[in-house]
Design a protein around this nucleic acid. Structure first.
Lengths: 330, 330
DNA sequence: CTGAAAGCGCTTACAG
DNA sequence: CTGAAAGCGCTTACAG
């Protein structure tokens, strides 16, 4: 390659990488010129094989079409790119077997790190350690000292949302929740019920539904939740995907939000700002999560770190607040 | 590695790849057992270096947060995965320089193909041919026999949408368009104006806006479009991102859709079904586009192929149709 | 049908 | 500061 243009291959490597050894500025210039004139493009594959680092990360999400994961992927891609890393993306489609398959492929491709929004109830620790790459769990926690985990305090977020609904004075505050086997869904359920109990009320099982984190899930759940004789007058909705489905259902049923049904949702993606009414939501600090993930991998800490971010309640109108008179019902 | 467990490295390679040479079933079994017991994981990097094929594709989109590109990425990832290929994802963020940078990185990583939703006005043919990988342009056309291009007939789609609005009897049919320097935006603009002219009307420049394909863009454009003394009574909206922004604007202005303002949009992503009212839209055949892209790459045609898909007008309510009485205004 | 060996294009100790 | 050489873990002609 560019070797024909001056010196040894080692020197070329040194200047291209600001290598482990110094190079005289004269030789360096000769090499640079040669690189320029030959149109040399380093082969990242060969470099990865020789150096052991592929400068590539693998990320696996359960559903890239879910706006929260889209935004998270976007943020991770950007943070990775700032660190000079490329992103291999996989969608497990909520399937643990597919997730494992993707993870194996990524490890086989010698990724420098694995970012996992896992759909497994628990990760196989043996697998992880044998993988030999740093893995950071996103949106999940884990009890394993070799694995990093970054989460948001789902319980606190759900609780804050529900408390806000309580302050508004709604009497029948329901939950449109996610699949209970998902840790995030479970924590949000607990946050909802704890807020209710703290207010001296007993959570009403007739007012809760557990459905997938999809628009369709939210739509179906809303139809059944709102069809009863004693429907909720407020709902904590565990994700924005579901909230969009809920809005479709209320429109179909001719219910007004927030007058007939108030709601607060979770995630803080852009759609919450564009819905009508604009959604009060518990926003996740997506950029911070992505930045932490990349930092954990590039600084390769030995011990698994647990990072928990605090979500932020963003007040808009779906809860019953108005711009002029926050906290007033209707 | 697994070589310590029986025979030569060549044979191992042959059985793992159903290699170029046959292996006796006895030896094959021995190898398989050894692989099993040693927990051997093939190194895809070394394989890529030796074989010249990385089994990886690179995809670059201008904005992964745009639902159309999210869905396209999702579909491509799935099709790639079915073909045993992994996907490297990059977001150019509408920046040509960034796009080039990503493309260089991907080529350096020896991808087996490059899927490009390019933001460059025209691709540098010299670069493409020197890249030495098949590239398929998505959502763009090009006059270059070495490059594949898959598009949708944007002109026909826009025209069909506008004609439908004409049939409804709207008198002031405007356009909420995309950036005119984008080929897709331009074709949709032409489709809109051609439909109008075919109906014997002159497109009214006061009724058109050109803004980015974002929710915010749609929102801002709507505010100015609808604020005049003679606002449009119908709008062809060039993307669903913009349509979502428009809906926010009409809600803010107290306008009813479709009674005060009818609309038809473009893309056919899920959100169009969940908006209120449900959006009549020109749907792009995303799965077919993705399948074609992967097929073009895996079958490595020598000559650049141009594939144009026909979009489909999906009638819902935002145009003024009702389930019971299609084509009736209001 | 199988083994021994060269080679993919880099990086990195090892000598000088 | 620089060169010659080994090695990363595979695949693939080349002999047998």
């Amino acid at each position: 390659v560019a070797r024909a243009a001056g010196t040894s291959t080692a020197v070329v490597s040194y200047v291209l990488n600001d290598g482990p050894r110094p190079v005289s500025s004269e030789t360096r210039q000769k090499v640079l010129d040669a690189v320029e004139s030959t149109g040399y493009r380093p082969d990242a594959i060969a470099r990865a094989l020789a150096s052991g680092a592929s400068r590539t990360l693998g990320m696996i999400v359960p559903d890239i079409a879910n706006a929260f994961f889209t935004d998270l992927t976007d943020a991770v891609e950007e943070a990775a790119s700032d660190a000079g890393l490329l992103l291999l993306l996989g969608d497990s489609d909520e399937d643990p077997a597919r997730e494992r398959e993707l993870a194996e492929s990524f490890v086989g491709r010698r990724v420098d790190g694995l970012l996992l929004v896992s759909v497994r109830p628990e990760l196989d620790g043996r697998w992880v350690s044998s993988a030999g790459v740093p893995v950071v769990l996103l949106d999940r926690t884990i009890h394993d000292t070799r694995i990093h985990a970054i989460t948001v305090d789902n319980h606190a977020g759900a609780r804050a949302a529900t408390e806000h609904l309580v302050e508004h004075g709604y009497s029948r505050i329901g939950l449109l929740g996610g699949p209970v086997d998902k840790p995030t869904a479970h924590a949000r359920l607990d946050g909802w019920s704890d807020a209710l109990r703290a207010a001296g009320r007993e959570p009403d099982p007739d007012l809760v539904a557990h459905v997938p984190f999809t628009r369709h899930g939210g739509y179906e759940a809303s139809l059944s939740l709102l069809d009863g004789t004693e429907p909720p007058d407020a709902l904590f909705v565990a994700s924005e995907q579901q909230a969009v489905g809920l809005l479709r259902a209320t429109a179909k049923l001719g219910l007004r939000v927030p007058e007939d049904l108030a709601l607060i949702t979770f995630d803080g993606t852009e759609i919450s700002e564009y819905c009508t009414p604009q959604l009060t939501t518990v926003a996740q600090p997506i950029a911070a999560i992505a930045a932490d993930a990349i930092a954990l991998i590039t600084h390769h800490e030995n011990h698994g770190k647990q990072i928990t971010h605090r979500p932020e309640l963003i007040i808009r109108h779906s809860c019953g607040c108005t711009p002029s008179a926050p906290h007033e019902k209707g």
